[in-house]
Design a protein around this nucleic acid. Sequence first.
RNA 1: GGGACAUUAGCUCAGUUGGUUUAGAGCGCAUGCUUGACAGGCAUGAGGUCGGCGGUUCGAAUCCGCCAUGUCCCACCA
Length: 909
Amino acid sequence: MALSTRYNPQEVESKWYDHWMEKNYFHSEPDEREPFSIVIPPPNVTGVLHMGHMLNNTIQDILIRKARLEGKNACWVPGTDHASIATEAKVVKKLRAEGIKKSDLTREQFMEYAFEWKDKYGGIILDQLKRLGASCDWERTRFTMEPKLSKAVLHVFVDLYRKGKIYRGKRMTNWDPEALTVLSNEEVIYKDENSKLNYVRYPIEGMEGEGITIATVRPETILGDTAIAVNPKDERYQHLVGKKAIVPMVNRAVPIIADRYVDMEFGTGALKITPAHDMNDYEIGQKYDLPIIDVLNDDGTMSEAAQFYIGMDCYEARKRIVKDLEASGHLIKIEDYRNKVGRSERTDAVVEPRLTEQWFVDMKGFAKTALEAVDKKEVTFYPSHFWNMYYSWLREENIRDWCISRQLWWGQRIPAWYYEDHFFVAETAEEALAQAKEKTGKANLTLDDLRQDEDVLDTWFSSWLWPISVFDGFESPEELKYYYPTNTLVTGWDIMFFWVARMIMSGYEWSESLLGPEMIAQKGRQPFNDVYFTGMVRDNKRRKMSKSLGNSPDALALIDNYGADGVRFGMLSSGAAGNDIIFDAPFDKDTNAVLNESKLCEQGRNFCNKMWNALRLIKGWEVSETAASEEKARINTLAIQWMNNRLQEVIAEIEGNFKEYRLSDALMALYKLIWGDFCSWYLEMIKPDYGKPIDAGTLEATLDIYEELMTTLHPFMPFVTEEIWHQLRDRLEGEDCIISTFPNAKAADADQINRIEAAKSIVSNIRDTRNTKGIKMKEALNVFVQESDRSKALFAQAGLKAMIIKMANLEDLNFTTEDIDNSVSFLVGTEKFYVALKETIDTAAECAKLQKELEYYEGFLVGVRKKLGNERFVNNAPEAVVAKERQKLADGEAKIKSIQETMAQYGCG
RNA sequence: GGGACAUUAGCUCAGUUGGUUUAGAGCGCAUGCUUGACAGGCAUGAGGUCGGCGGUUCGAAUCCGCCAUGUCCCACCA
């Protein structure tokens, strides 16, 4: 069968993915083998594949595929997250477009629409992952809101409540006026924004002409002021403390209080206190027992309590009140100002501090546990410096309780039922009813008398159980006993606190009761042993890729263009763990559209093509059963030995890389091994003359090597390796690269490798001479080497001379004891080589070249001599280091001598 | 305000306990190559006083201090 000159990923990829699925290779069941498990960071159910997912999942797939090749029971559990705020927002928007308001629907109706949407659009992303080659166990696909996982969530809620770790309370919380729900502190993103600092003067009650001026960026909240505060040490305001200021517009008399919280340096040193709309003001309000006047509605419009601008959006009200204050003479001045504004992570709406009644998880104990787990390396972070960020989040003084209730419908409804002024927490309404009956003594209560909490739980309250719940751990821990702890979690550092820390917390909280103390003693309580933090994917201007910027290439289009293997190569070769990935996707200046071009993916695609053409070369050879000529056989034997040595060397290197999660280094090592050593050198060494056959022994050895290369590369580039692996030899049913055996590194003969490196260097030098002298490759050259013990030892290696003759196209290569007339010389190590030329050589050019070389070595030796001349170095440095320096000196001197001789030969000045 | 990480060739990065490094890779660049695996290719080459200044050491890209620049995290400054 004739193979096309180009590798065609489209056909190959779908063919092999289907094949793997058919063979059920991705599926895992507990058995006697060592498990290797990974749980996917569940993407949002309504999400589409973006560059971050591609990076993330490529890495997971590499780890899983390697484990599979190592004979472990590899289990990669996929799934999606219900993403309550994001999904609910999408559904609300879609309904609005159809003229349906959420407020017109019942909870049940809304959920019906939402599930419809989820069934239609949900999970697209998982199919997209298949294009990337992700070898997830699709039979295990889970969803955070599916019945079993929801049941686990309720179980955990009740458990924590009973343990006293969940409480309900009225607190200042972050209100998202667009999503109409509270958020946890972590869901609020603070950014510097431009705003106006308004100076407003409040008259003093009973003191005509007196006033106190405050500065505020939120003048509309003046309507809710219930005090003015100054620093007790501030002499400017001593006489006003204890007096009352008149709040403009509403003409409310509020106390002027003194509190150390107020910074005398800032603004005017006087601070308006609005307990309803500021975290700190709230605390001061508590301290001084100030009334709370909430001037905003939940949607961010002005409330009745504001008295003015009722129903108006607060930003509009802000503009209006400034004008009105100016008109009434209260406004002193306005300054430009930059301050931090908190916005909702999901909706980008400006978050409003608001006093609401919510459910919280007490984080003190959890944080301590999670901190210790990483500190004691029961969970290891890669790269390790992320410990710092983790620590700053979780340390006692920074940790805050986790607000877990959300005023949404899409999610797990809080399992608390109210009756009169009691509430009952239970996994089912029936249990709650039983509690209610007992508590109230009313035996005739029915379910209808109870009212379930309207709110749902934070999405992360289900995600934090993921490593346990995907194995149904809370229901029947059988599988969990096998797969827990999972091996590696691969995720972005941006959700370190949202997700990683909380999974660690939940793992430590529940694994022991689920697995039993014996198993815990053996395996530990951690949900995963290692965490590999990926960087953020950024564009070539270092901006984080995002939909709103439009700078994210279309992931699937990239796969179409370069093939999944090409894209995987591109993603991976971009950087080490934790480093941000600069993904060079250039912008079209005119259309502002991202071009789906990527140098790195192109490199990956070209790599596939290179391997494909090496295959074509090998498959194009005719095979001869008769042995090759003696000389050819020597070259081939030498080449095969060398290639095997190099292969072993690189396999050992890759093992080390994997241990440290240096996957891009591992891939690059293979890239260079395959393209450089295998294609450029090995195949050229053994290549038969045009039209001639290859001997069967050499071909078999070559196929063995190529096969091993494909197995080793398979985790990184699964499709092309599977295809080539099958093209190399006829395979039996069920014999596939994906389930072949990852090689163990065997000892490599370093001396042999060094000898071939020297030979390669000789060949390169001769080629360079051809280049600079304009001598065509076809023209055979005569080369000599200065006879010495070392040169004789080098050429004692069987086949080495013949190999150089072949690779450099030489007429002959012989020892000499004399300088060769009309030749160009070069050094490899300390050995001198002469390339005899037919034309007269350009002496001046040779002299210049030699002079430059001479200067380099002389400079080099200055340093070496200085070291060796230093008594303290000779006395203090380890003997081996000193010996090395002495060798450097001897070699350098020999080289200089040789260069000087050549210069004399040319008669250089 | 506190902290982390970075700064090495035109670009993106390696350089793992200081000594085979007057420093490596990939891409890019330059020069040459028209039949025979591959121009998505081959060969060869040119690029860097390792951000700056001090210090420790026989020896520093590597360890310490200060400074500069950048990225990010945390923090209640209206």
